[in-house]
Structure formats: C-alpha cells, structure tokens
C-alpha cells in the first residue's frame, strides 16, 4: 500500500519535473528563435531601372526578376523605390554605377545620354541588360523585350476583325510623344503591314497615329480626353501601353461612348480585365511580364558566369478578349 503510494508520487514528481523542464526549454527556444530569425542572404545585387516603376506592368516584371534572382541567391532591387527622392533614370544609372551593382536591368531608350551611361557602366565592369525597350548602339550585353513587329501584327489582326465590309474603319493608334525609340515605329509598321496585306480587300481601314503627351506625370490622361472632345471619333483606338489603355477606357465610359469606340488595349491590369468582362475594352494584348523579368536575370547571370548570352530574347505575347478573360481574372485573383 505504502509502496504503491511511493510509486504514484514518484511518477507524479517525475512527470512534473519533465513537464516543467520541457515547458521552460520551449520558452527559451521560442525566445531564441526570435533572436535568430535570419533574413535571406544573397550573393549578388542587380539594379533594375525602369521609368514607371509603380505600374502593374513593371511591378509584375520586377516580381519575375526578383523571383528568378531569389532562386539564384541574387538580390534584384527596383532602383529608386526605396529612395525618398524621385531620381531620374540617368541619376538612377549613376547611383547603380557608383554603388557598384553587380548588374543592371535597364528600360533603355535610344538617347545618347543613355548610351553613354550604359557604356560607362560596362566600362566599370557592370553588365547591362536592356528590358522592353532597347539601346541598340550601346555596349549592353542583351535585350529582353517584345517583338514589336509581331505585336503589331497581332494588333493588325484584331483591327481587321472589327472591320465591316463596305465601310471605312477608322483606327487611331496612340503613341507616346517622347518615345524616340524605334519600338513604337516597328509596332506601328507591324499593324500597317497586316492591314495592308489583308485578304478581304472589301474592307477599308484608315490608320492614323495620335500623339499622346507624356512629358509629365498627368498629361497622358489630359491628352487622351482631348481626343474625345473632337468632332469625329475613331472606330477603334489602339493603345500601346497600360496607362493609355486605362485612360482611354475611363474616357469612353465618362463620355458615354461605350459600344461606339472599340478599344484594343495593352497589358492585363485588374481594371483592364474588368473592362473586358464588361465589354468596354474589346481585347488586350499582354506580354508575359514576369517572364520578361526572369529572362533579364537569366541573361545577366549567364553573361557574368560564362561571358556570353543571346543578344536578343523575346517574351510571349497573348491576346485576351471576352472569350478567355474569365480565366485571367481567376488567375489574377489567385495571385
């Protein structure tokens, strides 16, 4: 009887000791874990320098680049986002050079200043990959972008779908006034060529270029609205970037021109996808921006490691219209 009591109390004491020790240790390690919480360590740093870094288009491209970089233990930073001041592209390039980045992903243009900066960076041993828009005469090691001509062809085909036999289809292509690169021109010629080579010659298409003032932050919206103030509206408006698409969509809604003006947009932001669902925007061409970002990091790393890479890579282009928009909406929500 007494022995039993001894055994019972011994078991209780043992369990109590172990329990106390266990809980105590759990406490200690719990606190220690907090102390040891470590951030990811990277081996290199690439600076990604783009103009409109806040748009979903570039955010998505950056996300792709960042992901690819993280997979390779490379830190990809979107230059200027963390800085309190708003620096110009040239300043951001200089910062990247001075701060000795391991590589630069640059949304270039064909300006001389840009060429010089790229060349200076390369001279300092920093490799540069241009993204989306190129600076062909510089020493950049690779360009990752959209085949402008191919994109133009896609737009051309969509334009032709809108045409009605016996009527003249007026098409306005919005181009940015400051874009002194060749990309837009190539794209425009892609549309032009597709329209010109149409099989049904009964269809009449009148293509025109409309300049959109993008010299400052808010002028795009203003100049698109100016378009709607005019007497004669085009039947189809082709927008070549995300901001133009969004502004045009808003203008069509505001001026009550839904159904009268067909919009062919660019990129797949939530707003644009919603507009397609509501049939305000007929179709949008989208670039796989994430892929674009990934390709840049790949090209840069490849070049750093083996000294060579493909000079030119294109990313996939897709057309989204009311027939397949739902799938993209689902994907967007999933993201």
């Amino acid at each position: 009887m007494r022995k039993k009591r001894y055994v019972g109390i011994s078991v209780i004491t043992g369990v109590f000791f172990l329990l106390t020790l266990g809980i105590g240790l759990a406490f200690f390690y719990n606190a220690r874990e907090l102390q040891q919480e470590q951030e990811k360590l990277y081996k290199a740093r690439y600076a990604m320098i783009v103009e409109d870094k806040k748009t979903p288009f570039w955010q998505s491209a950056y996300e792709g680049a960042r992901q690819e970089g993280a997979d390779r233990d490379i830190l990809v930073e979107l230059a200027g986002t963390e800085l309190s001041k708003d620096y110009s592209m040239a300043d951001l390039m200089r910062i990247a050079i001075y701060s000795k980045a391991d590589g630069i992903i640059l949304e270039a243009d064909e300006s001389r200043e840009m060429t010089n900066l790229i060349n200076e960076a390369v001279a300092q041993g920093i490799n540069v990959v241009t993204i989306y828009s190129d600076n062909a005469q510089s020493d950049r090691c690779s360009f990752v972008g959209v085949g402008g001509y191919k994109l133009g062809q896609e737009y051309g085909r969509e334009v032709l779908k809108c045409a009605v036999e016996g009527e003249i289809l007026k098409v306005a292509v919005l181009v940015n006034s400051t874009a002194n690169d060749t990309g837009q021109n190539i794209l425009y010629s892609g549309i032009q060529d597709t329209v010109d080579r149409r099989e049904n010659k009964e269809v009449q298409v009148e293509l025109s270029l409309v300049q959109v003032d993008n010299t400052n932050a808010f002028s795009v919206e203003e100049s698109i609205r100016d378009l709607f103030m005019e007497e004669e509206l085009p039947d189809v408006i082709v927008c070549l970037d995300e901001l133009n698409t969004t502004c045009t969509y808003q203008a069509v809604v505001d001026y009550n021109k839904v159904g009268l003006v067909k919009i062919l947009g660019y990129y797949e932001s939530d707003t644009i996808l919603k507009a397609i669902e509501r049939k305000v925007i007929g179709a949008t061409l989208t670039v796989n921006t994430e892929q674009m970002g990934r390709y840049c990091v790949k090209a840069l790393t490849e070049y750093r490691e083996i000294g060579t890479t493909s000079q030119y890579s294109t990313v996939d282009v897709k057309m989204i219209d009311s027939s397949n928009v739902s799938q993209y909406v689902v994907d967007a929500y999933a993201k």
């Binding site: 951030e39 990811k40 930073e77 963390e82 000795k100």
Partner: peptide, 20 residues
C-alpha cells in the same frame, strides 16, 4: 555587412562613399 537586402543597401552606401 551581410548579404541581406538591407546589407546590400549598406554595401551600396559604402561603395558610393568610397567613390565619393
């Protein structure tokens, strides 16, 4: 300096400081 995100920002600062 470590290779974290902040570490690289610091590295940038030191690189620029050296250039400066």
């Amino acid at each position: 300096v470590t290779g974290t995100t902040f570490g690289y920002m610091e590295k940038s600062i030191y690189a620029m400081a050296s250039a400066y």
